[in-house]
């Protein structure tokens, strides 16, 4: 079943008099439980595409279904709700709240959840998530007291706090050394394999893209290879059956 379906998405920026087309007819399908890398050089439109996929931005034309819901016509408040419930974000610069404990950073998205959870449950859920990312003993630490890798783990826990089906990671290892990068990427692989969370890695690094089951290349606002093919989800199923961030491979459309 597909989680994301893009049909003929266009995005054009208006810089004064000049129209700058960034996305030129992108069609794409991502199945539930996939781990996809979105690759492209800078200026290729991958960030724009990610913003649209992440419901932060709206396409100029085309249609977008997320989890079976057509979202092209939603208001910004409805988009905010959607982001809160269905999407987690992990950023290159972590974007943790300064001078705020790891636990409170993880709790933050819950304060925008309409159905208010009781405080105790909030605390327990967040503590469990921090445990999941291996930061039991760092809950009270502020970001300035955490290493880069630890900060990114907090960010991942934060992204997961509303149990979203979809996780975006925008250059998640851009600010980390190679060893830590590997750890973080393995964590993504685990989350994908064990929790079935759909993960979209945005990167320009082919080495990182190798951790994904499928790579979508973007060039000049268009998808380069036929990665939007319908049989890609099957591929994801197989890779989940044989969980392996340890056997990274670049999934091509099977012949």
């Amino acid at each position: 079943m597909e989680l994301i379906k893009l049909a003929d998405i266009y995005k054009t920026y208006h810089l004064g008099e000049i129209d700058v087309p960034v996305l030129k007819g992108v069609s794409l399908t991502v199945g539930r439980g996939e781990m996809v890398a979105l690759m492209g050089a800078s200026g290729s439109g991958k960030t724009t595409l990610m913003n649209i996929l992440g419901c932060l931005d709206r396409a100029s034309a085309g249609r977008y279904w997320l989890d079976g819901q057509e979202i092209s016509g939603l208001s910004s408040d409805e988009l905010a709700h959607l982001r809160n419930q269905k999407i987690g974000f992990v950023f290159q610069t972590f974007n943790l709240l300064p001078r705020t404990s790891a636990l409170e950073n993880v709790m933050m998205p819950l304060s925008y959840t309409p159905q208010g959870l009781p405080d105790r449950e909030v605390r327990e859920r967040c503590a469990a998530l921090l445990h999941r990312v291996g930061l039991d003993d760092r809950m009270g630490h502020e970001p300035s007291q955490l290493s880069g890798g630890q900060q990114q783990r907090v960010a991942i826990a934060r992204a997961l706090v509303n149990r979203p089906p979809l996780l975006f990671a925008d250059e998640p290892t851009g600010n980390l050394d190679s060893h830590t990068s590997e750890e973080i990427l393995q964590m993504f692989g685990q989350l994908n394999a064990e929790e079935g969370i759909t993960i979209i890695l945005v990167t320009h690094d082919a080495g990182i893209a190798r951790h994904a089951q499928r790579v979508i290349h973007i060039r000049d606002g268009m998808i380069e290879d036929g990665a939007g093919a319908a049989d890609a989800p099957q591929d994801a199923q197989t890779s989940r059956a044989a969980p392996g961030a340890d056997q990274p491979r670049r999934t091509e459309v099977p012949p």
């Binding site: 905010a80 982001r83 809160n84 419930q85 950023f91 974007n95 925008y112 959840t113 934060r158 992204a159």
Partner: peptide, 16 residues
């Protein structure tokens, strides 16, 4: 500003 952007990204509406 970044904090505001982050809060919006995780689901804060303008009115929040």
């Amino acid at each position: 500003t970044r904090e505001i952007g982050l809060r919006m990204a995780v689901g804060a509406r303008g009115r929040d």
